[in-house]
Nucleic acid binder design. Sequence first.
DNA 1: GTGACAGGTAGGGAATTTCCTACCTATAGT
DNA 2: ACTATAGGTAGGAAATTCCCTACCTGTCAC
Lengths: 111, 111
Amino acid sequence: METSSAERVFAALASPVRREVLRLLRDAGPQPVNELAAHFAMARPSFSEHLRVLREAGLVSETRAGRQRLYRLEGAALYEVQEWLNPFERFWREKLTGLRELLDSLDEDES
Amino acid sequence: METSSAERVFAALASPVRREVLRLLRDAGPQPVNELAAHFAMARPSFSEHLRVLREAGLVSETRAGRQRLYRLEGAALYEVQEWLNPFERFWREKLTGLRELLDSLDEDES
DNA sequence: GTGACAGGTAGGGAATTTCCTACCTATAGT
DNA sequence: ACTATAGGTAGGAAATTCCCTACCTGTCAC
């Protein structure tokens, strides 16, 4: 189903190639495979495999248009990462603002 | 070339075991290896390996205390994930309000 | 139809991951 | 010093990943 398990999403994001594909789709919008693949020095079948992983994670979707297939970024799957990350937020906030501000925020801004 | 920091972080997060370790450290605070390992049905050396991956990604740090080693969550590394994720935020916002925006744009097209 | 193009699938090999058992190191308590 | 405990390292098997070449499918143009 399209209920992309967080498991597959995190596994998909482990590859720099696949993260770069997501960035390209984010910055340049939906594109056919050819255009995406031009940025990578690997054989097309290898690239196809990366697209499959991204698709099965729900991170991208494909739309057939003639003999091209447009790939587009699907934000919902990335939102799962954001949701996983949210409960950790206070830990980098501690790091970035230091212990004193942490103690302050615990007094007034605990959420 | 040495593996970049974000690269190791994403690779570390690909394992459900390692994500669970981070959750445990987040919810129960710094703990010795024994206490963490109790939650996983695997041999200790295997678990040690997971800790090594987390350590090399900068996601946890260890403090020696007697013959125990306290592992603690390091938020700074997770912040790298948040920074990577931030530019994608508008894509899941679009998704969450997608239906309304779709209907709105259809109205504009037909007017 | 034939040919060219877009992009996928099949199968395989090298590298990596993940788990294991066996062994080593360091510290605490006696 | 001796023993038990905490936790790591060494080395290896099985599974997975990532890339390759070769081939197949579907669409467009002629």
